[in-house]
């Protein structure tokens, strides 16, 4: 194992998910004053900026890197964060990548739930347990809606953004588990050890997000 590099106390390591969120995250963080630019398409997994290292990760891995302290902070959707069960601080709702996690069934379906397909087994289990529904949770990797259409499951728990996929496939949202959006998450020790950099960053992000939601209204 490579020992953790000794970093200057004011160096920040950020865990960001690759793909669309990365672009929005970099843009937001640079508006908040961090010297970041969108990395060129390359095979690099780690990007160095003055005083900042950016780790480009799968979004499920962001809470892991932050909780275990390899990254000081990161940006990840509330859906992924809740599913991870990781104990990190989540001081700012960044309000982009908005969607909701919903219980979805074929339109008019009324049979009792025996199996529920989902990419979010932990969240699904908690939701079903809280309602006393003794259904089996089946962990799936993608195209979750298909499970409800093929009879693999009586319902699925999945993300809904606009609902157009649901309409096109004769599916409907029966219940909304929670609303999700991108969150700034921070390692519990890093918030204290690197407060000189993180606290102002949190405050600037809150201001920016607050102003933007004002103008959008």
């Amino acid at each position: 194992m490579t020992p953790a590099p000794i970093r200057a106390p004011d160096h920040l390591t950020l865990a960001l998910p690759k793909g669309r969120i990365l672009e929005e995250a970099i843009s937001l963080l640079s508006r908040a004053g961090l010297p970041l630019t969108l990395p060129q398409k390359s095979r690099a997994l780690r990007h160095e900026f003055p005083g900042i290292t950016v780790l480009e990760l799968r979004n499920q891995d962001v809470p892991v890197y932050v909780d275990l302290g390899v990254a000081d902070a990161g940006i990840v959707g509330k859906d992924v964060l809740t599913e991870s069960g990781r104990e990190v601080y989540e001081p700012v709702d960044l309000r982009f990548a908005a969607c909701r996690l919903s219980l979805i069934r074929e339109v008019g379906a009324a049979a009792p739930l025996v199996r529920v397909g989902t990419k979010y087994p932990r969240v699904a289990r908690a939701y079903l347990n809280a309602r006393g529904i003794p259904a089996e949770v089946v962990k799936l990797g993608g195209n979750i809606e298909l499970a409800a259409l093929t009879g693999l499951a009586e319902a699925v728990i999945d993300l809904v953004q606009t609902g157009s996929t649901l309409q096109a496939n004769n599916l409907e949202e029966v219940d909304v588990l929670f609303e999700s959006s991108a969150r700034l998450i921070v390692n519990r020790a890093a918030l204290k050890l690197r407060r000189g950099r993180l606290r102002p960053l949190i405050e600037r992000l809150r201001t920016i997000v607050g102003e933007e939601s004002q103008t959008r209204r």
């Binding site: 509330k78 104990e87 990190v88 601080y89 989540e90 001081p91 700012v92 709702d93 959006s181 969150r183 921070v186 918030l191 809150r206």
Partner: peptide, 9 residues
Amino acid sequence: DRKSGADID
């Protein structure tokens, strides 16, 4: 405890 402003709202 999670310092989650969004959850508080």
